[in-house]
């Protein structure tokens, strides 16, 4: 347990050093932590506060203010349904409800097997391809409800 903690502290120090420990780089540091852990574990956030001499309250404020951060573990594949205006007028809400049914979770939740996390994203800026869903960074354009089961199957592999 102690060694695990020490390892994590070393890993964190490496991340902080990338930004020379600058307090103004807190958001970038949290982004890198999320990249490494897939979410922001509370234990690591506490260490961030200690290492950077920032009150935990501040760290927590930033971690909860921005939509990109998650305080709970996310699935292996993050499914993001675009909720931009172009996607909205082309029926994105039906895609979201379909995904909720297919994955048997609500938006914002992670499947039990931790394969998928379902989220809504504000606008991916791919309005010409609306409606779009981004899975694992790949954009699926002009998506229809009918295509969803096959697409999810590919990510389950």
């Amino acid at each position: 347990m102690e060694t695990a903690r020490t390892d994590e502290r070393t890993k964190l120090r490496e991340i902080i050093a990338r930004y020379h420990g600058e307090k103004s780089s807190l958001i970038a540091i949290l982004q890198d932590i999320q990249e490494a852990y897939n979410y922001l574990p509370v234990a690591i956030l506490k260490m961030v506060g200690q290492e950077m001499d920032i009150p935990l309250m501040r760290v927590y404020e930033v971690a909860t203010f921005y939509n990109a951060f998650s305080l709970t573990p996310r699935g292996k594949n993050v499914v993001e349904v675009c909720a931009g205006t172009a996607c909205h007028v082309k029926g994105a809400i039906n895609l979201l409800e379909n995904l909720e049914r297919e994955l048997e979770i609500k938006c914002g939740e992670t499947t039990k097997d931790e394969t998928f996390t379902l989220e809504q994203v504000r606008c991916l800026g791919c309005c010409s391809l609306a409606p779009v869903v981004r899975i694992d960074g790949n954009i699926h354009a002009y998506l229809t409800q009918q295509q969803i089961p096959d697409i999810l199957r590919n990510y389950r592999k």
Binding site: E22, K23, S24, S25, L26, I27, A28, L30, Q31, R58, E61, V62, F65, Y66, N67, A68, F69, V121, R122
Partner: peptide, 24 residues
């Protein structure tokens, strides 16, 4: 500097707060 998903950060004073590493 990369944002972290907050629409309000397009507002200039919020953007500057975010650049300082704070909530926008």
């Amino acid at each position: 500097s990369k944002g972290a998903g907050a629409f309000v950060c397009g507002e200039s004073t919020a953007l500057m707060a975010s650049l300082e590493g704070a909530a926008g």
